[in-house]
């Protein structure tokens, strides 16, 4: 993870309007108008990612709404360990759910969670009850790594004909 400070992200996330561009990397905030404005899946409150968590991958995700780590084996491997520590207790080792809902089918508790943006939003900002917000507990890029691993679990389930 290479943290790159990007000025103005807090405002971007709040209002969805890019105010500043970064000179490093591509895409930059100026490449994505409008940027993704993250919201809580529960009550639509804006979700704000602190600047120090906006890495290249997070910046790219916020521009496109797609997880740039989705195809990264390395990220998925890192996500596997993060998943084991943070998600498995409720969603089970194979992602099929137990205390919490399944992550490997298409029955989403919130329609938005069908998209990668919604998936990020519910992990980062939390859902209702025991689906706790991971904001402040996991940096945003770790959430993208977990999503990459969940993608693997979904692929595996589809391969098993369990989707």
């Amino acid at each position: 993870m290479i943290p790159i400070p990007l000025f103005g992200w807090l405002v971007v996330l709040l209002f969805g309007v890019p105010l500043a561009a970064s000179a490093s990397g591509d895409p930059t905030p100026s490449d994505c108008t409008p940027a993704i404005a993250l919201r809580s899946v529960v009550d639509d409150r804006p979700l704000v990612i602190p600047e120090e968590e906006v890495t290249d991958a997070v910046a790219a995700f916020l521009c496109t709404g797609r997880n740039p780590l989705a195809a990264s084996e390395e990220a998925a491997e890192r996500g596997r360990e993060l998943y084991r520590r943070n998600c498995q207790i409720c969603h089970a080792e194979d992602g099929d759910g137990r205390m919490g809902p399944s992550l490997i089918d298409d029955v989403w508790m919130y329609d938005r969670v069908a998209s990668e943006v919604g998936r990020f939003e519910i992990i980062y900002g939390g859902g209702v009850g025991v689906m706790r917000a991971f904001k402040g507990k996991l940096p945003a890029e770790d959430i993208l790594a977990i999503m990459a691993y969940i993608g693997k679990l979904r692929e595996r389930a589809a391969g098993d004909g369990r989707e």
Partner: peptide, 19 residues
């Protein structure tokens, strides 16, 4: 029920809980 009312059963969107 929980989200899955029985092993191998359907996954519910509403009307479920866990404790």
């Amino acid at each position: 029920p929980h989200q899955q009312p029985w092993p191998g059963g359907p996954k519910l969107k509403d009307g479920w809980g866990c404790s």
